[in-house]
């Protein structure tokens, strides 16, 4: 079984076994400075990076990521323009994309998966493609070595979670709260509750995303989960202060989830 894991899942399982908590920052592709922000994430302790491919109608995103996506679209960014840049990023950790299904459906799952593979992308997160509709995409993704990271939500009944987990590759995205992406003042109870439910039913690494807003909340979430995904807090720093601020923040979160520093 171990041989069949893709790159993300192999690395994540090995790191988990070694006692490391996993950190996956999200950066909006095409937003000015996005390439340097990704390099800064990689240099400061990220375990993988989620590159957002902006879509005109991002229904799972809150104001910060909406704003970054819209700015990138207004600059004329396209999926291919982002993918063309990926080989130049020159980072060692696995890279995934996060986008909405119409950008996959338009070229077709096969062509989209092939274009990810050519670019060196190894994972994909499609938040508006639930399990029941995921067949055509997953077949194409599997054939091209793209790990499809499924989302599990707090609203799911117990019998649904193992099914979602079984189809997830790389890791399982445990949605932290009822709502869209964005920073919140505290970690929702649902974040640790769902992560705990998922840990009972799957060996796939479980990472909490949506509403994990600072180092302290990341620490809190990783007491239960195998890691965290942070988007809005990264993108806000990129928009306000640039790529270096993203790198500093990743280092801060890294230290927190490693159990170092004041957040313990």
């Amino acid at each position: 079984m171990a041989d069949s894991f893709g790159r993300i899942e192999s690395e994540f399982r090995a790191k988990r076994a070694a006692g490391r908590k996993l950190l996956v920052p999200y950066i909006t592709g095409g937003y000015p400075g996005w390439q340097d922000a990704i390099r800064a994430c990689a240099a400061n302790g990220a375990d993988a990076i989620e590159i957002g491919i902006p879509f005109s109608d991002p229904v799972m995103d809150g104001p910060v990521i909406q704003q970054a996506s819209q700015a990138a679209l207004d600059d004329g960014i396209t999926p291919n323009a982002i993918l063309d840049e990926v080989p130049n990023l020159d980072v060692e950790i696995p890279l995934t994309v996060m986008t909405y299904y119409n950008l996959v459906h338009h070229p077709g799952p096969e062509r989209f998966a092939a274009s990810l593979q050519r670019a060196g992308i190894v994972g994909a997160i499609l938040p508006d493609l639930p399990l029941e509709e995921s067949g055509p995409w997953c077949a194409a993704a599997d054939a091209h070595g793209i790990e499809t990271i499924m989302l599990a939500a707090p609203t799911a009944p117990d019998d649904r979670l193992p099914k979602v987990a079984a189809r997830s590759r790389g890791f399982l995205y445990s949605v932290g709260l009822l709502g869209v992406t964005g920073e919140r003042s505290s970690l929702a109870q649902t974040a640790t509750d769902l992560a705990a439910r998922l840990k009972l039913v799957t060996e796939v690494p479980v990472l909490v995303g949506v509403g994990v807003s600072n180092a302290e909340q990341a620490y809190e979430a990783t007491r239960v989960a195998d890691g965290v995904i942070q988007g809005a807090s990264m993108v806000r720093r990129l928009m306000e202060s640039g790529p270096d601020a993203v790198g500093d923040y990743v280092a801060e979160v890294r230290a927190a989830i490693d159990g170092e520093g004041s957040t313990r």
């Binding site: 639930p130 029941e132 989302l151 599990a152 939500a153 799911a156």
Partner: peptide, 12 residues
């Protein structure tokens, strides 16, 4: 047709 929604909305 179909049901292309975030996982959170599938049970709803």
């Amino acid at each position: 047709g179909g049901r292309f929604v975030p996982e959170t909305l599938v049970p709803a």
